[in-house]
């Protein structure tokens, strides 16, 4: 056979064989007219340097919500609860002012906060007319279903 070129099929076979024999310090392969011999450094194989800079940065996996002690809300206050497991946000977008502050008067349809569930945003409304008395959860924290977020003192 005259001069031949190495094919991608040859290459794939050779590299698969080299990879599967990484525990041996010597490697010799002869297939047809192709011969490959390798000597590896003594001791455990050091990790290979990737050919291409691997700049892959995977998004952080969501951490499971922490178990928190139930907040008690006195009887004369209206508790606003999270409808779902999710993340609590006090403002519409990062860097913007919060929807409400303690002491602020609210209407039933005033948006108090956002609960993010699986990347979708759920605006949480006050449900009653009154005044925000307490905010129990810090911005950006994970909340459970039914967890008390805020307390409102109703007003007639």
């Amino acid at each position: 056979m005259a001069e031949r070129n190495l094919t991608y099929e040859d290459l794939v076979q050779i590299v698969e064989l080299i990879r599967t024999t990484s525990q041996f310090s010597e490697f010799r392969l002869k297939v047809g007219d192709i011969e490959v011999s390798l000597k590896r450094a003594n001791g455990a194989a050091r990790p290979a340097v990737p050919l291409q800079g691997n700049t892959d940065v995977e998004p952080a996996t969501p951490s499971s919500p922490r178990r928190k002690s139930e907040v008690s809300v006195s009887e004369n206050l209206h508790a606003v609860r999270s409808p779902m497991v999710g993340s609590f946000y006090r403002s519409p977008l990062p860097g913007e002012p919060p929807f409400v502050e303690i002491g602020q008067a609210v209407e039933p349809d005033t948006v108090l906060c956002i609960i993010e569930v699986m990347k979708l945003m759920n605006s949480i409304e006050a449900g009653v007319r009154g005044t925000v008395r307490e905010i129990f959860v810090a911005n950006g924290t994970a909340v459970d279903a039914g967890e008390v977020l805020m307390a409102i003192e109703p007003r007639a």
Partner: peptide
């Protein structure tokens, strides 16, 4: 394919000697 093989072997720190004939 030869270029790729050489580059791949060259990037592997654990290999100190390699010979390819075809």
């Amino acid at each position: 394919p030869l270029h790729e093989l050489v580059a791949w072997l060259g990037a592997r720190r654990d290999i100190e000697h390699a010979r390819i004939r075809f």
